[in-house]
Design a protein around this nucleic acid. Structure first.
Lengths: 341, 341
DNA sequence: TAGGCGACTGTAAACGCTTACATCGCCACC
DNA sequence: GGTGGCGATGTAAGCGTTTACAGTCGCCTA
């Protein structure tokens, strides 16, 4: 183990209290004493022991991030945003994935006590019960794109959510603006809140544009490319074929694109196509896929800022639900723009 | 703050030592005493305080991961692999990005004392000096796809590296096996160790196949799509045009593909093309790109396992440099296989 | 010259836990 | 009936810090 404050004190010929004082710049210390201590620290390569400090100050300068088990680029970006904001304020980031298994969530949550000053929960769905029950009440928590089961409890936590509805609304409206009247939707999984919100945006946009909604045009899906492909096939079989397709995420849009291409249907010539998420691939496929851009890293940053605020106010602050807006990325696939790239 | 061990002891009418014993399953405890304590724990929602425990046991059950500032999917996957392995053994993962700024690296490293039991360093290049100087000697460190500047010190740390040479070797050999004799290489940046290794694999494969190497066929690049595009243009101008191109990464391969397509050159008909990394897009472009698959998550898992081993043996174990093999993914772009997908 | 003040420093308690050691019954055994 | 051993429990030290409190000293002011 490396040197402790005692050894520094010994070497500098002072008490540990004085060493602590120069460490934290608290209380007066004679300039030459400080000098001597600084030298001792240097020589011994002394670094204060985080855990010991935490024990007494009751803060760890660390925040925890809870992730669902399967995480891809989305989460990578979020963490990046979080980490940046955290480092700026001298905080560390402890990440932990977990299986959906409720017992494991509990275990993970509990293991966090005394290790973190706050928590960002990033998981499709957790129930408020589990959360509340396994966490000290005073622990600030920010939910990031996460819906708690017990909706009534929603107000108990800060939350950052993506404007799924708004994004979908804008995209569908854009399609309608191009003259499309038969606009199909490929849905996400029913139990997924993002998916439901996107559908809501789709429906609201149709209504806003005075386009009549047809259940036949709302096709089931599950966010997978495969599902997009199947939906594409079904679309092709529809009597008056839709002239535009809005998929609830890019993967399904790509699957659908395959199905259309396979059948010799031109995109955007015969059918306009758009997705959601703006995954990196979107730009690269042919034609480039129109999509709703999600500022992922910003979600993380915002969550972190919110959390830091909560930590500072000792969790006595007012809870707030924020919504982060999306951006419409119009590319070749919906035929509505000059090609980019 | 939540309850402490004292309150549990009080409530159960025992001493804190006994509570600690049931907490850690150490030493004998009468069955009904244990029962009473368990109840008290339950009632009070008691969870042991991590930092306090660390202080005395001298272990934090946490390992740190140092990331370069810009991290994309590669790192996300690595972290995922690390996290999985970690959780399996009840460890936590503390991540930290950092700017290349040496002073900041130092700051981050030092801030880690007393917080982690070990460290995984994942960064294109750190110098061994900085590492050694700011870390307690006893702290186990595993370098993941990271070359230390002071090569002589290489043996001081465990290291996990990707078999860049082997992957390139296999791919080029495959191309040669298809009958190609004029195989071009689009290189990565000279200062990048991965890039150099891949070039070595390329050259070794040519030699192994008895194909004469031509400097004209080795084109400079920097891993960017743009560079691939430029290299593609230059390739097209070559007197006897190469019949196959191996790009040191997929981005450049894709850039090259654009250049070829633009010139009306068929892939794989006129020119076979292959990349390295097997990024997700590789599968989706037309034609699907042959590539060298990198088992990213496994890199993380292996690093974690190695680290855990080091932690257990208190860093007195034998250092080892491991190499993780790659897999050849033959797809449409090199004309050597049934299409997949 | 007494009093007081401010700068500087040391002493010791406390944070929440683990653990070596001591204590106390109780039973078995010779 | 003493001895030893063992199971169950408590006592207290100690991990590396921070910090309230109490000194000490020099110097200024009235």
């Amino acid at each position: 183990m490396s040197a402790s404050i005692k050894e520094v004190a010994l070497r500098a010929g002072v008490s540990i209290a004085t060493v602590s004082r120069v460490l934290n710049d608290k209380g007066p210390v004679a300039v030459e004493t400080r000098q001597r201590i600084l030298e001792a620290i240097e020589k011994l390569r002394y670094v204060p022991h985080g855990a010991a400090r935490s024990l007494i100050t009751n803060q760890t300068d660390t925040i925890g991030v809870l992730l669902p088990d399967l995480y891809g680029e989305f989460f990578s970006e979020v963490i990046r945003g979080i980490d940046q904001a955290a480092r700026r304020d001298g905080f560390h980031v402890l990440v932990s994935g977990f299986h959906s298994d409720r017992a494991e969530i509990a275990a993970v949550l509990r293991a966090l006590r005394g290790r973190v000053d706050g928590l960002i929960v990033l998981s499709p769905d957790v129930d408020a019960q589990t959360l509340r029950r396994n966490l000290p009440e005073t622990l600030p928590v920010v939910l990031l794109n996460t819906r708690v089961d017990g909706q009534l409890d929603g107000a108990a936590f800060d939350a950052i959510n993506l404007d799924n509805r708004g994004g979908a609304f804008a995209m569908v409206r854009h399609l309608a603006g191009l003259g499309h009247r038969r606009i199909a939707l490929i849905e996400g999984p029913e139990e997924n809140a993002d998916a439901r919100e996107r559908r809501r945006g789709y429906r609201d946009a149709l209504r806003a544009e005075g386009v009549e909604r047809s259940p036949a045009l709302e096709l089931a899906g599950d966010f997978s490319e495969e599902a997009g492909y199947r939906a594409g096939r079904r679309l092709l079989a529809l009597a008056p074929r839709p002239t535009a397709v809005f998929a609830a995420n890019d993967s399904m849009a790509i699957g659908c694109l395959f199905a259309l291409r396979e059948a010799g249907v031109q995109v955007p010539g015969d059918v306009a196509l758009a997705g959601f998420d703006d995954i990196p691939i979107a730009r690269y496929i042919t034609p480039p896929l129109s999509s709703v851009h999600v500022p992922i890293a910003e979600l993380g940053t915002r969550a972190m800022e919110r959390l830091l605020h909560a930590v500072e106010s000792k969790n006595e602050h007012e809870r707030r639900q924020e919504t982060v807006p999306t951006t419409l990325m119009v590319r070749g696939s919906c035929g509505g723009a000059a090609t980019d790239h």
